[in-house]
Design a protein around this nucleic acid. Structure first.
Lengths: 195, 195
DNA sequence: GATTGATTAGTCAAATTTGACCAACGTGCA
DNA sequence: TGCACGTTGGTCAAATTTGACTAATCAATC
């Protein structure tokens, strides 16, 4: 039971309590959390309810503005405070691998034709360059004083990871150009002179 | 409906058809997929069933060895073959961000005491060094001829990503040592001379 | 003063993921 | 022979995630 979502929602409640779900959602949006966590609306509201069930969080009350849906406000319990500390430390000390949408694709790269694989990788290289650039520009444009520093740290890390993937992809393209590996449009390992 | 799990299971069925769920599971284990995809048993069997429902895959038959549970074998349909191509290309061309367990922790780093944050980051630095080293050793030890090359590519990429995180973490530690940011054990932004 | 579009606040069915659990079989070893 | 331990093959309830959808309010714009 570690759940990054739990940590995230619990942490936001901890800072802004009392808060309701939509506040959490808005805050996480300003953290750019869509790109590194599960923060679809259902995930957030579910996290709040399940943490309430588990006594980490409690309902402060509900209010209503005009004819809009009721808002339920939450705050941490003492138990929630303890659990928050535990989750932060756990997340920091555990170097957990994360799911990665590229790996599955890479597993099947050789089902493409060689030329298409090269094209896909080159497209990716361009995209990664753009990604790193975008992160830099976005860092310059951060303004929310509450989250500026942390978000900048994360964008920086993301940019560096993208930058690390770049030479990897470039070297792979070079190998493919040199005839390494066997692709869908080929029968036997390609000889440099063949075809 | 992109699902890396679907792509992964569909792709394995495509290679080894006819196959049953356990075969898929074993193959994905040899790909080290636990570290970059959702391959818990339930995920795999569920993917097979849902793809059968959607007509991407069809049951070849069932057999039973001794008194063990029945095995259901699957193979691709024409529709599944088309969908496989679509999924591979989609996964390659889309540069999707992935969920990352470090980011949520990083969001709350300032809830630790400064010394603890530094210790956590240093632990992480060591872990990343180990990670990169482990990947290198594991590459040398790969033997399954069916998956050797792809797995080596992936381990290499993972090692490089880890290596990219290293200078990021080191620079952050340096900044924390220099008194940047404000932590739980501090009231105001730390002045170099304070404390 | 009406229309258009963004923001607020949240719900819910469907899909996916988790991982503990079950039961049979093989293998080595004392 | 007996028994501990790993492998085979899969199930299932519970938890989580998705994202389309509802429905009201607010701010501009024509």
């Amino acid at each position: 039971m570690s759940s990054p979502t739990r940590l995230l929602v619990l942490g936001v409640v901890r800072i802004f309590q009392p808060v309701h779900g939509y506040d959490v959602r808005r805050e996480l949006r300003s953290w750019r959390a869509e790109s590194w966590a599960n923060v679809a609306p259902g995930s957030i509201y579910n996290a709040l309810k399940s943490m309430a069930r588990d006594g980490l969080v409690e309902v402060v009350g509900t209010d209503q503005v005009g004819g809009r849906p009721e808002r339920t406000s939450y705050r941490l319990t003492a138990e929630g405070e303890r659990e928050f500390g535990r989750l932060v430390r756990e997340a920091f000390w555990a170097v957990a691998p994360s799911v990665d949408p590229l790996m599955p694709a890479l597993s099947f790269i050789w089902t493409l034709r060689r030329e298409e694989a090269i094209a896909a990788l080159e497209h990716r290289i361009q995209a990664l360059r753009g990604e790193a650039e975008r992160a830099r520009l976005e860092i310059a444009r951060l303004d929310d004083p509450h989250s500026r520093d942390q978000v900048a740290l994360m964008l920086d890390l993301a940019a560096r990871r993208a930058a690390a993937e770049l030479p990897w992809a470039e070297e792979l393209v070079a190998k493919l150009r040199a005839g390494e590996y066997t692709f869908a449009d080929e029968r036997a390992p390609a000889e440099p002179t063949a075809r």
